[in-house]
């Protein structure tokens, strides 16, 4: 006996297959997107926490000499960044009389002829930490090698006007962290 409109046990469900497949595709797409966004946000939080930890180490005493900075670089900054699996650059700038924020290349450390750069990254372009101002060439080089960096700046007391002076003046620590 033939049932009217019956096209088989599977055939009868064919109309529902399209919304079900569509739903599965959308659901899977959502999961993939959510996973990517979740990982990206975690990575961002991890970078910022790493930058914060490094800045805690750098600003703990409130003052730094060049020798202190080198010691911290070898004993604290590099091991911590290595453990965290990130690239970093900490730039120690002695300004002394007034803080010059218009020295726009954040990687340039040779301010006042005596300061420090601590990094675990090998820059391909020598422009990055040797050119004081943010010229287009420097900007391009930094953009090529440093992706989505977290930058934190802190004031710090430094020996002024010379490295071996007893008085302390104005200095700045730039903490820059980015993904490997």
């Amino acid at each position: 006996m033939k049932k009217r409109g019956f096209i088989g046990p599977l055939g009868d469900d064919i109309p529902s297959i399209f919304p079900i497949v569509l739903g599965i595709v959308i659901f899977m797409g959502t999961i993939v997107y959510a996973n990517g966004a979740y990982n990206a946000r975690n990575a961002d939080l991890h970078l910022r926490k790493t930058a914060l930890e490094l800045s805690y180490m750098a600003t703990e005493k409130g003052t730094l000499s060049t020798q202190d900075f080198r010691d911290l670089c070898d004993k604290s900054f590099k091991p911590y960044a290595s453990h965290a699996g990130t690239n970093f650059a900490i730039v120690f700038k002695r300004h002394c009389s007034k803080i010059d924020l218009f020295n726009k290349n954040p990687f340039y450390s040779n301010y006042s002829g005596n300061a420090g750069l601590c990094t675990n990254a090998a820059f391909k372009s020598p422009l990055i930490n040797s050119t004081p101002s943010m010229t287009p060439d420097v900007g391009t080089a930094i953009a090529d090698e440093v992706k989505d960096a977290v930058v934190l700046n802190y004031p710090i007391a430094v020996n002024c006007p010379e490295e071996n002076s007893a008085t302390l003046g104005l200095g700045v620590i730039n903490v820059i962290v980015w993904q490997k």
């Binding site: 600003t59 409130g62 002024c160 008085t167």
Partner: peptide
Amino acid sequence: KSIYLIDASTL
């Protein structure tokens, strides 16, 4: 910290 450390004359 800088209040306690930085020498006023440098400002």
